Simulated scan of single mutants.
Amino acid sequence: MSESEQTPPSPPRPVPADDSNIFFSVVTVFGTLFVVTVLVAVALAFGDPQIPMNQWLNRHLTTVLGAEVLFLIAAGVLAMAIDRMRTLSRMRADSQAEEDASEMSHETDA
């Protein structure tokens, strides 16, 4: 039997609470802001067109929504990239620890 068949793969380690990714919170904030902006735009569409907020949104809504979408995408990509880098780093560390433990057990067996 090969060595990989002898030992089952170890389950992934849970992420420590202090190792959280701040960009996931940023994605949540930008997503909420986007939804609120859309809801405000819909509500104002049924309101008085002479209200200053309605006039401002009529002029700038496309720009505001475009900026929010771009920030949302950027924060999402950053969050996923950072999460992936941390996961790969953790996997490398776990793999190295398993190799070290395997070498130690082979040394004690000999």
Rank of each mutant, 00 (worst) to 15 (best):
I22F: 11
D18F: 09
L33R: 05
A97E: 10
Q96H: 07
V77C: 06
A43S: 12
L88T: 14
S95D: 12
V40F: 02
F23V: 00
D83W: 07
R86V: 07
P12R: 11
I73R: 06
D100T: 11
V38C: 13
M91H: 10
T28S: 15
V69E: 06
V29A: 13
E5L: 15
D100A: 14
A67E: 05
T87N: 13
T108R: 15
P49G: 01
A97K: 04
I22G: 08
F34M: 14
V15P: 02
T63M: 08
V69K: 14
S25Y: 14
F23H: 13
T7K: 14
T7E: 06
T87M: 13
P11E: 08
W56M: 11
M91Q: 12
P12M: 02
L65I: 07
F23N: 12
P9A: 02
V69Q: 03
L57Y: 06
Q50D: 13
T108Q: 11
I82Y: 10
N54K: 10
S10M: 06
V42N: 02
P12Y: 09
V40C: 08
P8E: 09
I73T: 12
D100L: 09
P11S: 04
D94Q: 12
R86L: 14
A97Q: 15
F23C: 01
V36H: 06
E5Y: 11
D94Y: 00
V77Y: 12
E68A: 03
Q50G: 10
P11C: 02
Q50L: 09
F30N: 03
N21T: 03
F46H: 09
R59S: 12
Q6C: 06
D19T: 03
Q55H: 10
H106N: 07
E98D: 15
P11M: 04
Q6W: 07
P14A: 13
I51M: 06
L33W: 04
A17H: 10
T7V: 07
V38F: 05
V64S: 03
F46A: 15
D100W: 02
M53H: 04
M1Y: 13
E5C: 00
M80Y: 15
S20N: 12
G47S: 12
P16Q: 02
D109P: 01
M80C: 11
I82H: 08
D18A: 14
F46M: 12
D94A: 07
A41Y: 01
G31K: 08
T28M: 08
P11Q: 08
L39F: 13
H106E: 06
A93E: 13
E103W: 04
